[in-house]
Design a binder for these strands. Structure first.
Length: 474
DNA sequence: ATGTCC
């Protein structure tokens, strides 16, 4: 027989072995000790060990399996939540849906949670709500970061008069159409970037299979609420970081993340976390990885790589536009809003701060909070408010779900609003219409203790992922 | 958000 000793994990599970570490140990023992035996005989031995492990504790061959079987099975133990959530602050509570608050309550009942806050643009997500901020001790929650790891904003301010968005409109539109890629579209020949030669792409198993597509998608933008847009930024703070005179300038703003790479990493490690960290039903998507484990360290490295990759994509977008404009920006501002950071709490202890749809707003930290296609976005400087865990919103937040927007909004109404606001739109669907978003001014009012406004941005030429149904109506 | 369903 050519398959002597060949047993796989599934066969062990079939005869009743619990999923987990013991499978690996048993397979190792089988390979080492029973490789010449018929599979059926091996399975019989394995059955006997399983039926009465204590009888095999002194067996030379199977004692390791027996020991593992006798260990209290931590894998199936459901970790208890605290009876009530730790206190946390909600900003702009009146505008936040109940489901998001419920999800944040659940997150604040995790035994690993230390602090948290809910931003005024919050809405329901998987695990941590979008707009949720959560500080934990030495653990990282993949769905506390979100699927689009490193989703971020980037703004370039050019020393070009604001009037150019009108006088140069045709050229700017061409630059967007020819030099940005959305959805499935990618560049025929992506620009090289050092991120692709990062050794982690060969050192971490899950990343090996992601390198090729990451290269193919380099410099692209994705779909949904991602955009690249030209607009006018008014710098309102004379005491700004770049010594720019207050006034209006041509500006480029982009919003996108880590494409397929981050999504694959997020889903892979969430699944892994859910296998090792069993939580009650309502909290199961908040499964965490201990940063002292191999999986936790791998996720941390992979997450950071995905963040750097997302940043690289933005930089290439901005580089292409700067080439088109034949000038370099006088200022660049950028920030992740789906990410986890190692920070210090007020006592100086290390904490892991997850921001899932939240802008870092430590004291003096610059960030960008976009509004909608027709509403202003803001360049902000964090005030370092402790209660917010040094955070602010990452946008206005949705007022309508995507389906609701698609079903109720009329293309003509949206077009009228765009026209009124003087906004030229390339691509997009009805679900990204301005009316689908909350009023950003109300959201900013709710977080005035968290950030101060450095500049106000108005979108003028917006490119998003296309939507045929919306496009047809011309 | 996502080679938009392994």
């Amino acid at each position: 027989m050519q398959n002597k000793g060949k047993i796989n994990g599934n066969q062990l599970i079939e005869i009743g072995y619990p999923e987990g570490k013991v499978i690996g140990i048993a397979l190792e023992v089988i390979q080492k000790e029973y490789s010449l035996m018929e599979p059926d005989e091996v399975l019989d031995i394995m059955k006997n060990v399983l039926a009465s492990p204590s009888d095999f504790l002194n067996d030379l061959k199977t004692s390791f399996i027996a020991e593992e079987l006798l260990k209290p099975n931590k894998k199936d133990e459901i970790i208890e939540l605290l009876p009530s959530p730790r206190l946390y602050k909600i900003y702009g509570k009146e505008g936040i849906e109940a489901g998001a608050i419920k999800q944040m309550d659940t997150a604040m009942r995790l035994p690993v949670s230390i602090a948290g806050a809910l931003m005024p643009d919050a809405h329901q997500g998987y695990g941590l709500p979008i707009g949720g901020v959560l500080a934990t001790r030495n653990t990282v929650i993949p769905y506390g970061v979100g699927v689009d790891i490193g989703c971020r904003m980037c703004m370039s301010i050019f020393d070009i008069p604001a009037g150019y968005v009108e006088t140069g409109k045709g050229d700017l539109m061409k630059m967007l159409v020819n030099n940005t890629m959305f959805g499935r579209a990618t560049f025929k020949k992506p620009k090289d970037h050092e991120i692709i030669s990062n050794p982690l792409f060969s050192e971490i198993e899950i990343l090996r299979g992601l390198k090729e597509r990451a290269y193919a998608q380099l410099g692209s933008s994705g779909g949904g609420n991602h955009f690249v847009e030209f607009g006018i930024v008014e710098v309102v703070d004379s005491n700004n970081e770049w010594n720019i005179a207050p006034g209006k300038y041509l500006s480029l703003l982009s919003h996108s993340g880590s494409r397929g790479m981050g999504a694959t990493i997020a889903n892979y490690y969430t699944k892994l976390a859910m296998e090792t960290c069993k939580l009650p039903q309502e909290a199961k998507h908040l499964a965490w990885l201990d940063l002292d484990t191999e999986a936790g360290q791998e996720y941390w490295l992979a997450m950071n790589l995905a963040g750097d990759y997302a940043s690289a994509c933005h930089h290439q977008i901005h580089e292409r536009m700067a080439i088109g404009l034949r000038t370099n920006p006088v200022a660049m501002i950028e920030n992740h809003h789906n990410f986890a950071w190692k920070e210090k709490d007020e006592k100086g202890n290390d904490v892991i701060v997850h921001r899932k749809g939240a802008t870092p707003a430590g004291k003096g930290v610059l960030g960008i909070i976009p509004g909608s296609m027709t509403a202003p976005g803001y360049v902000v400087r964090g005030k370092g408010d402790e209660a917010s865990v040094n955070s602010a919103s990452h946008g206005a937040g949705r007022a309508m779900s995507r389906t609701q927007a698609k079903n109720t909004l009329k293309p003509e109404t949206v077009k009228q609003q765009l026209q009124k606001a003087g906004v030229e739109l390339i691509g997009s669907g009805l679900d990204e219409a301005p009316m689908a978003y909350k009023d950003i001014r109300t959201v900013m009012e709710a977080q005035k203790d968290l950030v101060e406004v450095v500049g106000v941005f108005l979108p003028k030429i917006v490119r998003m992922c296309g939507d045929e149904k919306f496009q047809e109506v011309d």
